[in-house]
Design a protein around this nucleic acid. Structure first.
Lengths: 214, 214, 214, 214
DNA sequence: TATGAATGAGCCTTCATTCAT
DNA sequence: GATGAATGAAGGCTCATTCAT
């Protein structure tokens, strides 16, 4: 398994392209083999089975993404600069490889079934990065002291991924990376004015939705 | 497609449960039939095929969710209250039906293959609601006038869905609805201080990530 | 079974129409029921099962056809007149009910699997009729004395059925019954001249085809 | 569609045998696979689907039969010799491969649904051959000048096929090819005497059958 | 290593038939 | 008698995986 790196990459690249086009479940080994220009059987010299292709993709992608994120965060001076760099890096890596982005976002639920550790690592990495940034910003005085870091992480991660998803589903025509600044602006400043800020503290709780659909 | 609503719901409920447990692609008609306590063939009296089950689930779920959202928004007095109600409603509907939530979130990419209009409707509804809320808040003076509404929608939607996803993947043990307030706080006020706010305007652009993973 | 004759005919007529359009194997009980304007289950009050519908059709058709043939043969004065009447009757009954003709001709091989006696009867009837006609003609001096009756029967039956088949597969637009005269002319006179007649006696046997296709 | 001719023939032969025994509609892929000694899936390496097996059988059979017919016709000196050779060839090819004959004759109506061109070609070939033979015989003076060639074709084709059918349904025990001579005798000379010949011209039209059976 | 023909388990779907109403 | 919802056996077909070459 995994001797000839060229052929390994050739297959993985082909697989990601096919997965992106038709979805993992709808893709066949035969299609991947054809796209990669190898025989069906050859794939099994480099991957345990079909699932393993996706697993390895997630591992590599996560690793690469992590590196980018760490680098990005290192390059900023202030917490806010670092945050901006992180978000921009996030958008840029995904923009630079559309197929990978599509697969990464689309098959998340399979990732949860197939991969355990890597994803946790990704999550942990994200949490670590955010934790550090928040702590740093708080020391700098640029970030509020009263934050639930877990939620901040989900805010940022979720928003960025939704931006990427929209980009994917609208044909990937606009520039993704340029969304970094306005996004960070929203993260830092929120959508409210000072007047709005006070209003938040006094939200009345009014109802409860418990109806079942199905 | 016969119209015995009881059996229809029985099957749909069973299907959603099975989908949530094993994923759509890994679920079989036989499993759904067994879970529903009917024969395999019976399912085809109520659904065109396996895909149709998912489609109908998305249609019903989207419709139900939309209603909840509209109601929630109506019940608040100010824009911020309405926003809070919206977010809370979002979290509550999904919390109240875990299986539906899991399927809804997990099979999104299939929804894009199978359904066209309904999804757009969901997206459009969200955009409409946010547009109105933002406009209202801007008139009230509680929301910033310089906002790109499309991005605000993605911010809110993405953050809420990420919160739901995390809830799902951590065993659905904590109370989801209670996240509404802190989330809205983040939306409105952001994570920055006044000092931080100024810093945002001056973010230097420093690097570019173009490397390929696969 | 078989109480209400109206409904029985209603179903049988509908079945024959459906069989003619899609073929027996491709027809479903549901289609027949719909065509007949009854419920699926009702069909089983009049027929043992799907096969039985075809069986009963063949029985009725054979019976009706037989009657026509006997009548037709009775109405001629000479053997040749009778033969002509027989052929004409054959073509007329089938022309007068296209659906029945199509089913009768198309599902012959199923008839051999499902029906035993009736078909033998049909065959026997044909043989009887031809035997009598030939014997009569031989006495009259209008028909050759040196004939193998079994072969004559196949000649006539086969030719007529091929004419009907062609009629079916060319859209049933031309008048079938009018083929009776030229056909009988061929039966009686053959396609040869007197010169040709002599040539027949001296056919050299030259080769043997035994190759296998599949 | 792979091109291992051995296995292709192996499967086709097995299929024809099974079709001949149980009929096309009643045959299953599993039965064919077992008869051929291959796995079910293997069949789909050589045939698009179940229908395709029948289609390919008809194509091959038609092609083979055509060749035999052309050769047979070439080998006779006179028109009548050629006709005899044609009929004999027809009977011989079918006799030499009973299964193929059964399938060919039994599933004709399916052929009309599945194949278009090949069948027309078979029909066209037959018409071409007969046309030439008739024209030649007319020049030789051995065949009557006043013939409707289309009808002659149906006469000959129909009679031969009926002879084959009878052979099939009576257990294929007698020698089929030996029927060629007496058959051709009937084609050429007809069943009538000279006296009968005159009678044909004066056939009175006497009745009309329009009754419906079903 | 690489190939790709062969395998066969498994699944979706159809539809003849039944039976409670 | 009439209905038609429900049944479930059966079959066509796919495709991940293996293995002889």
């Amino acid at each position: 398994m995994k001797r000839n790196t060229d052929k390994y990459n050739q297959i993985l690249t082909a697989a990601v392209k096919v997965f992106a086009e038709k979805g993992f479940a709808q893709s066949t080994i035969a299609q991947i083999a054809q796209e990669a220009g190898v025989a069906d059987g050859t794939i099994y010299l480099y991957f345990k089975n079909k699932d393993d292709i996706l697993v390895q993709f997630y591992e590599r992608m996560t690793e690469h993404v992590s590196e980018c994120f760490y680098k990005a965060v290192q390059e900023g001076a202030t917490a806010i600069e670092k945050l901006h760099n992180l978000v921009r890096a996030h958008l840029e890596v995904f923009q630079s490889q559309a197929s990978g982005a599509i697969v990464y976002q689309s098959e998340t639920h399979l990732q949860w079934r197939l991969v355990q550790e890597p994803t946790r690592q990704m999550s942990r990495m994200y949490r670590e990065l955010i934790s550090k940034l928040v702590a740093m910003g708080q020391q700098e005085g640029s970030i509020r002291p009263d934050l639930y870091v877990g939620l901040v992480k989900r805010l940022i991660n979720g928003a960025v991924e939704e931006v990427i998803n929209t980009w994917i589903h609208t044909g990937m025509d606009h520039d993704l990376a340029s969304m970094a600044e306005p996004l960070v602006d929203l993260f830092i400043n929120g959508i409210g004015t000072e007047a709005g800020a006070k209003a938040v503290d006094n939200i009345p709780l009014q109802f409860n939705h418990k109806a079942n659909v199905v």
